[in-house]
Structures are given as structure tokens and as C-alpha cells.
Design a protein around this nucleic acid. Structure first.
Lengths: 180, 180
DNA sequence: TTATTCATAAAGTATATACTGTACATAAAT
DNA sequence: ATTTATGTACAGTATATACTTTATGAATAA
């Protein structure tokens, strides 16, 4: 019987390992590397908050990697540091609001890019319009009009994108598609 | 006057270069590398469809890079090959439905990941439940229940994510947030 | 058929990224 | 005050990625 329980334990570890491997593989979408994904999975299934040394032995990797990895996960708000009486080492546990993590990952990635692009497009539009006033060679004028069309299209798109991002940013997405 | 027009042309090129640089920088979000982003920008503003040689001289990079770059952009549906009578070389022009590109980029990235994760979670749940039936050591049972909670949470999340992706996939997003 | 032009494959090189081991600074424990 | 434990900076190494040059195969033109 002892033997059999041991087998279950092994099989459980194997099943968890499998699952963690899969989600880690896809965690690049959240801006988290493969290895840090496995790190997150390990912390996620731990029954208790883990220390860097725990993680190091669990994954068979250097403590330094755990240190930098956990920092990345903290910045992505995927783990949090907790304090426990009498424990000197830093302890980490999963911050497992995946819905919020998704929204944050999405917004963080797109917000800055969208803003930069919009700003650049506005500047380009201003420039092009100035050039158009100065130009009098037909070919150049034609080119400028063509370019302005492109820019105006881009500006419309950025407005739209801005609105889409805002839906995730404000949490409005959670009323449109309610969490389960 | 000729001199002045030349100046405008230069300034225009500079302004375009600036804009292209900015959008290229952020195009990583679409799964497109920096350089391929500039390549797209170049094709976008070209007055006529471009050949690989055109691009090569425009960007000062090897033709081979243009070849692989343009293939990546084709796969991302950002450029298309066009045919012109009497022209032997392949010609490419921008496929500039940015709204659709955004939706595709989003869906392509998340759909497969979400499906994989969901599948893995279902499998894990099945495994865990089997183990739970077999187990009779209290500690092990406790661990299994803890793990099952995590998995059930994950499954709920994947359902939600699936629905979010579906909104972009089906184009429903365009009625929720109409293009400008 | 032969010659030429074009796109791409293969191999090589340079640059960036991820990980490790060692060493150090900080803070708790004695 | 001294020692010990803990997290992180730094430097070095290995692996992956991006780009170029050279070579090859396919298709058109002569």
C-alpha cells in the first residue's frame, strides 16, 4: 500500500509536469519566457509559498536564474512576495488572477506602441501638409497626396485601436465577456 | 525653384523614414521583426508595387533578406504578390487592411495557445480525478484537492479566453468597436 | 537548345540572449 | 562585534537569431 501511494505521487508529479510544460510553452504570449513559465507553474502548484532555494532544487537550475526569473514574474504581477513569521528567506506565492493578468499583458504590450504610433502619425501628417503647401511640382504633389492618404488611414486605425485597448484597460471587457 | 523642390523631396523622405521607423519598432507586436517592419513601411509608401531588387536598394540590405522578409510579411497577410504584364520579377504591394491584420495577429497568436492549454488542463483534470479515487493517504488527498482547484480555475479561465478570442475571430469586434 | 535572369537554399559570421559560477553587500543571528 | 545566511551584481560561456555571401535550381528569353 505504501508502495502504491508512492506510485500515485510519482504519477501526479508527472501529470503536473506535463501540464506546466504546456502552459509554460505558451506563456511567451504574456511576455514571459519558457523557463520563467515553468517557474510560475512550479510556484502555482506549490502547497506553500516557496523560497528561491526551493525553486532552485525543484527546477534544477541556479539560484541566480530563480532570482531574475521571479523578478520578471513579479513585474508581470504573476507572483507576489509574502512574509511569514520566523522565516528569513523571501517567500513567493502565485498571484493567480489570470483574467487580470491577461488584460494587463494585453494592455501593457499595446498601449505604449499605439500611443507612439499615433504620435508619429500626427507628426507625419503635419509635416506632409506643410510640404504640400510648399510644393509645386506635379509629381511631388501627387506623391504627397498619396502619402497623406496612407497617414489618414493610419490615424483612423490608431483611434480604433485605442478604443479596443481602452476596453481591456478599463475592465469593460469583463462586463462584455463575464469571467466564469 | 528646382533646388527648393529637391529640398522638399529630401525632407519628405526624412519624414517618412521617421514614421516608418516608429511603426517598425512597434511591429514586434504583430510578430514582425524590426527590419521586416521597415520593409513593410517601405512597401506601404511606395507608389508602385516593388520588386525584391527595389527593396534591396531602398533599404541597403541583401536581396536574400528581402526574400525571407517578404515571405514573413506574406504569411502575416501584410503584403501580397501581384502580377503585371511584361514584368518578370515578382511584385509586391501592401495589403493594408490594418483592422483585419490586427485581428489576425491577435487570433493567430492566442488561438493555438488557448486550445493547447485547454486540452492540457482537461487531461490534467482527468488524471487528477483518477488519482484521487486511488489515493487514501490523507496528505496526498489534500494535495490532490488543492491541485484540482487550480485546474478548475484554469479551465474556467480558458473558457473565458476562448470567448474573447472568438470575438476577434468572428469579426464581432468590428460591430462592438466600429472601424473609423 | 543555350544562355540569362531571377528567387531561394546552404553555409558562414556577427550579434543578442539565457544561464551558470563566483564574488560581494546587506541584514539577521550569535 | 563577529559570524552566518541570503539575494543580487558581474563576468564568462553556450545557444539562438539575423544577416550576408556564394551557390543552385527553375523559368523565361534568345
Amino acid at each position: 500500500m505504501e508502495r502504491e501511494q508512492k506510485n500515485i505521487q510519482d504519477k501526479l508529479d508527472e501529470a503536473k509536469h506535463q501540464f506546466i510544460g504546456t502552459i509554460a510553452q505558451n506563456m511567451g504570449l504574456y511576455g514571459v519566457s519558457d523557463t520563467n513559465g515553468r517557474l510560475y507553474g512550479t510556484v502555482l502548484f506549490a502547497k506553500r509559498p516557496m523560497t528561491l532555494d526551493d525553486m532552485s532544487t525543484a527546477l534544477g537550475m541556479s539560484k541566480m536564474s530563480m532570482s531574475t526569473g521571479i523578478r520578471a514574474l513579479m513585474e508581470a504581477d504573476m507572483v507576489e512576495r509574502v512574509w511569514e513569521k520566523g522565516v528569513r528567506k523571501d517567500l513567493y506565492q502565485p498571484n493567480d488572477d489570470w483574467y487580470q493578468s491577461f488584460a494587463s499583458a494585453f494592455v501593457n504590450r499595446w498601449r505604449e506602441a499605439a500611443d507612439n504610433n499615433q504620435k508619429a502619425a500626427r507628426q507625419a501628417k503635419k509635416d506632409f501638409e506643410t510640404f504640400l503647401k510648399e510644393a509645386d511640382e506635379p509629381y511631388l504633389i501627387e506623391v504627397l497626396q498619396h502619402d497623406l492618404e496612407k497617414i489618414n488611414y493610419a490615424l483612423g486605425y490608431y483611434e480604433w485601436l485605442d478604443e479596443v485597448i481602452r476596453i481591456f484597460e478599463s475592465g469593460e471587457i469583463f462586463t462584455m465577456v463575464p469571467p466564469k
